[in-house]
Amino acid sequence: MQIIHLTYPVKENVIPSKIVLALGFFDGVHRGHQHLIKLAAKTAQEKRLPLVVMTFDRHPKEVYQKAKVTYIDSAAEKAYKMEHLGVDYLIIIHFNQGFSQLTPQQFVDQIIVKLNTDTVVAGFDYTYGPREIANMKNFPKFAKGRFQIIDVPKQSYDGQKIGSTEIKQAIEDGKMEFAAQLLGAPYVMSGIVGHGLRNGHKLGFPTANLVWSENKVLPKVGVYATKTKIGGKWYDSMTSVGYNVTINQSKRIFIESNLFGFDQEAYDQKMIIKWYKYTRGEIKFADLAGLKKQMMQDKAEIKAYFANK
């Protein structure tokens, strides 16, 4: 897969052929997105054209509303998922003030048409300007017959809409199993192993401290059954999200994984956490002995969870 970063105005012949173009922000590349991309891939295969996905480098709310936005995927995580869905080109448009001021007709003429698009595939709720005008119902009016449009209906799971907003809420509520059902896989956070206070080592539970992208959606404070990858290998693990209330009163959130069967220095190495199940909230213990006893119980419970999975 080739990644192409574009800044408006878009030049001609970015891709040297007609294309099938899937449109969306695709945060999480969840089951609804996967359905859309697979439909676009089938269309591209039938027409013998490359499959292109177009997204933005930030959510439009960051520009239109100056809002702080959290994300399910980092740019690298999103690209990884796209590549594994068979996408040929991932176009990432820099969503700046100039791009945000395009009219719906300009967006179609100066972006979609300039990209030499044969077919557009987009979800029922895709917008390219003010929602009441720039919606899928009005898309043919702006297209003027220059490309085909495939409108993909809403996707649901167990009566619940599959959407990035719903998934973020599930993660923030600690409902990791439900989030995984909507995503089609466990929620993932990636980063590097940072330097901690080594309190886990003192307790006999050495931890790897995740340094992550600040705009990632954070799981609810507590302890989780997770799998953690360091040094190219996955380990069953228990991961704490919290403030280390027994040891200090820091206002900073820590994400610390105790990897079962791993006890090495791994500072600055790549680290990936898959989140499976919330097991308990954060507790302030009277002393470190109480904390250690609870951690032993946590480890036994999480080991049993993975043994039965």
Rank of each mutant, 00 (worst) to 15 (best):
10 V>Q: 05
11 K>D: 06
11 K>F: 10
13 N>K: 00
15 I>Y: 01
16 P>C: 13
18 K>N: 10
19 I>Q: 06
19 I>A: 06
21 L>Y: 06
22 A>G: 13
24 G>L: 00
24 G>F: 00
25 F>A: 12
26 F>A: 03
27 D>T: 04
28 G>E: 12
30 H>R: 05
31 R>S: 05
32 G>H: 08
33 H>F: 06
33 H>A: 07
34 Q>L: 11
34 Q>N: 13
35 H>Q: 09
36 L>C: 06
37 I>C: 07
38 K>R: 15
38 K>H: 14
39 L>Y: 14
39 L>S: 14
40 A>D: 03
40 A>N: 02
41 A>H: 15
43 T>S: 13
44 A>D: 08
45 Q>G: 12
46 E>N: 15
48 R>H: 14
49 L>A: 09
49 L>Y: 03
50 P>H: 08
51 L>R: 05
51 L>F: 04
53 V>W: 09
54 M>I: 10
55 T>L: 05
58 R>E: 07
60 P>C: 05
62 E>I: 01
62 E>S: 02
63 V>W: 02
65 Q>K: 10
65 Q>V: 10
66 K>C: 04
66 K>Q: 13
67 A>S: 13
70 T>G: 14
71 Y>V: 08
71 Y>W: 03
72 I>R: 05
72 I>K: 11
73 D>Q: 02
73 D>S: 02
73 D>T: 09
74 S>Q: 04
75 A>G: 07
75 A>F: 10
77 E>D: 14
77 E>F: 05
79 A>P: 01
79 A>D: 06
80 Y>N: 15
83 E>P: 13
85 L>K: 09
85 L>E: 09
86 G>L: 09
86 G>H: 07
88 D>L: 03
88 D>W: 00
89 Y>K: 00
89 Y>Q: 08
92 I>E: 09
93 I>K: 04
93 I>E: 11
93 I>A: 00
95 F>V: 01
95 F>C: 07
97 Q>H: 15
97 Q>E: 13
99 F>A: 10
102 L>V: 08
104 P>T: 06
105 Q>H: 01
105 Q>M: 05
105 Q>S: 11
105 Q>E: 11
105 Q>T: 10
106 Q>A: 15
106 Q>Y: 03
107 F>L: 04
108 V>C: 11
109 D>S: 01
111 I>L: 08
112 I>E: 07
112 I>V: 15
113 V>Q: 12
113 V>S: 12
114 K>S: 01
114 K>R: 13
115 L>E: 05
115 L>Q: 05
116 N>T: 14
116 N>H: 04
118 D>K: 03
118 D>T: 06
120 V>W: 10
120 V>E: 08
121 V>I: 11
122 A>K: 03
122 A>R: 05
123 G>A: 02
123 G>W: 00
123 G>C: 01
124 F>K: 12
125 D>I: 00
125 D>C: 01
127 T>A: 04
127 T>S: 01
128 Y>N: 01
129 G>D: 06
131 R>L: 08
131 R>N: 14
131 R>M: 13
132 E>Q: 11
134 A>P: 10
134 A>W: 05
134 A>F: 07
134 A>N: 12
136 M>E: 12
139 F>R: 12
139 F>G: 13
140 P>E: 13
140 P>A: 10
141 K>A: 14
142 F>W: 09
142 F>S: 11
